[in-house]
Structure formats: structure tokens, C-alpha cells
Design a protein around this nucleic acid. Structure first.
Lengths: 131, 131
DNA sequence: TGAATGTACATGACGCGTCATTCAATGACA
DNA sequence: TGTCATTGAATGACGCGTCATGTACATTCA
């Protein structure tokens, strides 16, 4: 039978666990964000989208699919893509079989930047996630 | 000796691990945030500060100490406390031995709200963090 | 076919966190 | 004690994400 003391202990552990997740998330995300910002002038979310586009190189009506692979809102994705497009890293292509949809393509510049940034990204993950 | 293939595999695993952390962080944070917002009209960060103040009930020049226990910026903490104070949940007390510092106290209302919100918070952690 | 409903994406208002800066109070030291 | 550097906290400009909404296209079904 669970005593009050048991429950308090369990709660403490839960909260500890949560704080540790938060810290590791913020530490890692922050480090990557700052590094990418400094070296490539793009933020973490921009990179994440770039990364997703990069590794689904067979064509499809992307925007939609992207939203499903990231915790970002549809609206956030739209704005991130705005920025990527303005930066000339990605281009929106209209989709013939459903003209509401768009799919995305890396530009040459985008492909090049992604290649370098990915190295940095993986390195920082490795460093921050341990292993 | 590590082959190119080895490195690619390892990178994939790293990225998978990272995405899983992101998802679990966003899912959990989002759920708690929405719930607290709906039932108690405070956000997750407000609660976190409330929670920190609540469990360091011996007095000290808090603001500073708070900043060290949370990934939030000093400036963010300051603004969160603004909101908590406006909501009447917390009050800033000037500190006699160092008049630059402030420490925080829960108001009666703050203490009450924290008690209820903490129950919800722990429940959602439990639900989302598994265990 | 055409009205109703649903879907893909964009957009604007808004809230919040960050950075840089500021301000007051302290501390160090000549 | 008067200067200079430092520290705790607040503030304003700014960027980004979210929510609610808008717009164009698609689908369903009578």
C-alpha cells in the first residue's frame, strides 16, 4: 500500500527526471543553435527543415509531410521555409497533381550549406548527448 | 577501424535519438502548458518558477538563485516574475543585506494555486514521461 | 454540375524569450 | 575616501512560434 511518503518521493523523482530532460534539451538545442547561427547564419529550426528536405530527396508534395516529422506547427514550418527561401537555400515548387500543395527543393547553395552544417550538427549532438 | 558506413549509421542513430528527445520534450511541455493554462491560467514557465519558490521556503535572496536552477535567462525570469506578481501569486521582497537583490515570497493565493497546480503537473509528468 | 465540406498553405496579431543595455548598489584597492 | 570594476535586476527592441483566420484548390454527393 502506497503511503503519503511514497508518493512524495515518487513525485520528487519525477520532477528531477523532468528537470534533467529540460536541461539536456535546452543545453543541446542552445549549443547547436548558437553554433549554426554563428557559422552558417541559420537557426536550429531552419537546419532541421533543411535536414528533412535533404534526406527525402525523392520528390513528393513536401510541406505537408514536413509538418508531420517535426513538432513545429504548420504555420511555423511555413515561416521557416519563408526564411530559407529568402536565404536562397530552398525553393518552393508547385505541385502539378494538387495545386494546393508545394514541394521543396534544395538549391545548390542549400545543398552545400546543408552538407557543412550537418557535420557541425552531428558533432554537437554527439558532444551533448553523450555516447 | 571506422568505415564511412559506420559513421553514417552512427549519425543516423544520433539524429534519431535527438528527434526522440525533441518530441518527448515538446509533447510533455505542450501538454502541461495547455493544461495549466486552461485550469489555472498560468503557463509552464510561470509554474516552474512558482514551484521553485515553493520548495525553497527558507528565505534567501532568491531571484539570483532561481536563475541558476532553470534554463531560463535572467531576463526571462524577471519577466515571468512580473507576470506572477501581477497575478498576485508572488511578491518581491527587498533584501536588507544586499539592496540590489530581491527575494520572492508566495502569497496566500500563490500557495493555494501552487498546491493544486502541482498535483496536475505531477500527474501529467507521470503520464508523459512513462513510469 | 454546383453547393457544401474539407484540405494545403499563407498571413497577421499577439505573447514570450533573448540579447544588449541600463541603473543602482557593492566591492576592491589606491 | 574616491575611483573603477562587478554584480543583481529591469527594460526595450527584436525575432520567432502560435493561434485564428483567410484563400485557393479539391472532393463529395445530390
Amino acid at each position: 500500500m502506497a503511503t503519503t511518503r511514497d508518493r512524495q518521493l515518487h513525485d520528487r523523482q519525477l520532477v528531477e527526471q523532468w528537470r534533467s530532460i529540460q536541461n539536456s534539451y535546452f543545453r543541446t538545442a542552445g549549443a547547436i543553435d548558437r553554433a549554426l547561427e554563428a557559422k552558417f547564419d541559420i537557426g536550429l529550426n531552419e537546419f532541421e527543415i533543411l535536414d528533412l528536405v535533404a534526406d527525402s530527396e525523392e520528390s513528393a508534395c513536401r510541406m505537408k509531410a514536413l509538418g508531420e516529422r517535426t513538432p513545429m506547427t504548420q504555420s511555423a514550418v511555413s515561416k521557416v521555409v519563408d526564411r530559407l527561401e529568402k536565404a536562397g537555400l530552398v525553393s518552393r515548387q508547385t505541385c502539378v497533381d494538387d495545386r494546393r500543395s508545394l514541394f521543396l527543393e534544395l538549391t545548390e547553395e542549400g545543398r552545400a550549406l546543408h552538407a557543412s552544417a550537418a557535420v557541425e550538427h552531428r558533432a554537437l549532438l554527439k558532444e551533448n548527448l553523450g555516447s
